[in-house]
Write a protein that binds this DNA or RNA. Structure first.
Length: 268
DNA sequence: GTACGGCCCTGTTAGC
DNA sequence: TGCTAACAGGGCCGTA
């Protein structure tokens, strides 16, 4: 499930091949999630950006293609044209270099939007997203203030994208474990908020360095898996011993997401 | 504003 | 072996 490191990996791979390319034809699956793809006929792509888990592909006419990969979305290039026989092909753009950019998505949790550049009012999660993890204005104090704005559980807050952008289920569990913070906690002091911020930066940076985490579906633009799955210390390890203290990790469903933590070193 | 439930989807896995 | 049910999960929407 693509989170910030996976989306950043895709962005970096797309950039060199996409910038300046003109769309000479486009098509999509009939679902409204994907039909915006068709609005891009004739434009040229600019330099791909990213905000949280959203890919932002600027177009030469002052708009942006906003791509959310959902859980199983994948962007890739294909020589000579799109593979229209692929049952999971959801959208495609034929480019002026005899290559097609394809968006495939097995579970259709992904979505595409075309908006005037920088106008995200109709994309609530993007519109309300907190700062990027490495934003210089994001400090222990400002992060603490953002967390304090809600009384919801920390895990829920992280998944909401409001305190910080780009964190999903995997990296939230990893960061909370690393910072020794209970996912069900509802408030933190400034110091502990600083610990959590530092842990989030660490696990996200590690994810980027490893080209993302592939549990099952995620592939980068070249069709390769990431390698960060070998580094996970909490996520998906319920029932196994905590690497720090040996106590068995437990899991529970919070906010409809499986959450794994150590009942000993993440007591509070 | 917040909390909560439900929905979208389909491949995989567990259980019978 | 073959079937069914449960599960995975990010974002969004409606309701309270």
């Amino acid at each position: 499930m693509p989170e910030l490191p996976e989306v950043e990996t895709v962005r970096r791979q797309l950039a060199p091949e996409l910038v300046g390319r003109r769309v000479i034809d486009a098509g999509s699956h009939p679902s409204a999630k994907f039909t915006p793809a068709r609005q891009l006929n004739g434009i040229r792509f600019g330099d791909p950006g990213r905000r949280g888990k959203y890919l932002l592909l600027p177009t030469s006419d002052g708009r942006e293609l906003v791509v959310h990969l959902g859980m199983t979305g994948q962007l890739r290039f294909r020589q000579h044209g799109p593979d229209v026989d692929d049952p999971y092909l959801r959208a495609w753009w034929m480019l002026d270099n005899d290559r097609a950019l394809e968006f495939a998505d097995v579970r259709r949790f992904g979505r595409l939007r075309v908006v005037p550049a920088g106008h995200y009012d109709d994309i609530p999660t993007l519109h309300n997203a907190g700062p990027e993890p490495w934003d210089s204005e994001l400090t222990p104090r400002s992060f603490h203030a953002r967390l304090k704005a809600s009384r919801r559980m920390l895990k829920t807050q992280l998944l909401s994208q409001r305190p910080i952008a780009g964190v999903g289920n995997i990296y939230a569990d990893e960061a909370l474990w690393l910072a020794r913070i209970n996912p069900k906690a509802t408030r933190l002091g400034v110091d502990r908020a600083g610990d959590l911020l530092e842990a989030l930066r660490q696990v996200l940076q590690q994810g980027v360095d490893n080209g993302g985490t592939t549990l099952r579906d995620y592939r980068n633009v070249d069709g390769d898996s990431g390698s960060n799955q070998g580094e996970l210390l909490a996520y998906g390890r319920s029932g196994e011993p905590c690497i720090r203290c040996g106590v068995t990790l437990k899991s529970d469903v919070l906010d409809a997401r499986t959450t794994t933590w150590c009942p000993n070193c993440q007591r509070h």
